[in-house]
């Protein structure tokens, strides 16, 4: 059964339409990421699901029930805000108890027990008495998460919850989110502009662009088989090169270099060649490769190097092991692993 079903959601602010007919079904217990650049409409869509924003057209169903016209308090949801939105005049404990109190769930003692359990889940059991201003950013974030899961909502909405944390804390919280999702099995919708987050956390990624769903699928599908140039450039650091295919199983680059391609993809015409960083191997110029390029910039990353290469009049980015050290201006041979061609 689907927990959430959106059909033909349109949303306009004034005369500008920001969502152009979104259809989306989310299964019970699924962890779905809404991924996209800022301004693509992902947060607006989340706010529509929460009931904080009205739709111009379309229907929102939660658990089979039409909730399109209902205010947030009559929807069985919980939302975690990017700014956490903790109530500054209440302790962490009272913040977590707030949804139970307002929704009149259980007696005072039962509420206290559920709050304790939620605080334990986010490993904050002994800080319940503190005010939000006495907690660190990471701790505030955990309180916000506890507050979102305590009422056991039908749908958990997370609006860029990790974007205010530093890199180390963020990774920690990602692992924790995965664990909590596995343990509680809450249907979760996660809004993010961070592709790594979307790929590592979710069962399904919904890639949005300019108010439309660009592509959706499992993280593996969407990464390995992007359907559009937008999808391929947004997911993973892909280099996109215009090529002409044919005659025969060959792609011709702008500078005349030729690359053999699988016969299955050899429909003649103008195409975009997707070269993912991890699919390109750099070799010294004297070795035989598929393509030749020239080093423009070398960046030391510690574990390896990133090279910016000039290929067919374009800059592409490629990773290389530290054992290979090339200077700017040197020629380099490229061995291409997986080849993916998109319509231009």
């Amino acid at each position: 059964m689907s927990d959430l079903s959106l059909s033909q959601i349109h949303k306009s602010f004034g005369r500008t339409e920001v969502l152009h007919g979104i259809d989306l079904d989310i299964r019970s217990g699924e962890f779905v990421s809404l991924l996209g650049a800022s301004g693509c409409g992902k947060t607006t869509l989340l706010r529509i699901i929460a009931g904080l924003e009205t739709v111009t057209r379309g229907t929102v169903r939660i658990g089979g029930r039409d909730v399109t016209g209902l205010p947030p308090e009559h929807r069985d949801i919980a939302m975690m805000f990017q700014s956490y939105a903790l109530l500054p005049h209440l302790s962490a404990f009272e913040n977590v108890r707030f949804p139970l109190r307002m929704r009149r769930r259980g007696s005072r003692a039962e509420q206290a027990e559920r709050v304790e359990r939620a605080l334990e889940t986010v490993r904050l059991a002994d800080l319940g008495h503190r005010r939000p201003s006495q907690l660190s950013g990471g701790q505030q974030q955990r309180v916000a998460l506890a507050r979102a899961i305590v009422s056991n909502p039908q749908i958990l909405l997370l609006d860029e919850p990790l974007s205010n944390l530093d890199a180390r804390l963020r990774e920690e919280m990602q692992v924790e989110l995965i664990e909590i999702h596995r343990r509680l099995g809450l249907t979760t919708i996660f809004v993010t502009h961070d592709q790594d987050e979307a790929l590592s956390l979710s069962d399904r990624v919904v890639l949005m662009n300019a108010g439309r769903v660009e592509q959706q699928g499992s993280p593996r599908e969407i990464y390995a088989a992007p359907a559009t140039s937008f999808a391929s450039s947004f997911l993973g650091s892909a280099n996109l090169l215009p090529v002409t295919v044919g005659p025969g199983p060959v792609a011709r680059l702008a500078d005349g270099q030729q690359l053999a391609i699988p016969a299955g993809q050899a429909t003649p015409g103008e195409r975009l060649l997707v070269l993912r960083q991890e699919d390109v191997e750099m070799l010294p110029a004297e070795k035989a490769g598929d393509l030749k390029a020239r080093v423009a910039i070398r960046v030391y990353l510690g574990a390896r190097h990133r090279y910016m290469l000039d290929l067919a009049g374009q800059r592409i980015s490629v990773m290389a092991a530290n054992s290979l050290l090339l200077e700017p201006g040197e020629e380099v041979a490229l061995k291409v692993g997986r080849i993916l061609l998109l319509a231009r």
Binding site: A50, G51, L52, P71, P72, E73, I77, A78, M79, F81, S83, A85, L87, P88, H89, F98, P99, M102, R103, R147, S151, L157
Partner: peptide
């Protein structure tokens, strides 16, 4: 204003969010 929105998503009606969030703050 997000505090009020948060209160609404936690089950407060408009008047309750006024009473429990806006007024004390």
């Amino acid at each position: 204003p997000r505090l009020e929105e948060a209160a609404r998503t936690m089950g407060c009606s408009f008047l309750q969010s006024f009473r429990h969030v806006v007024l004390p703050l």
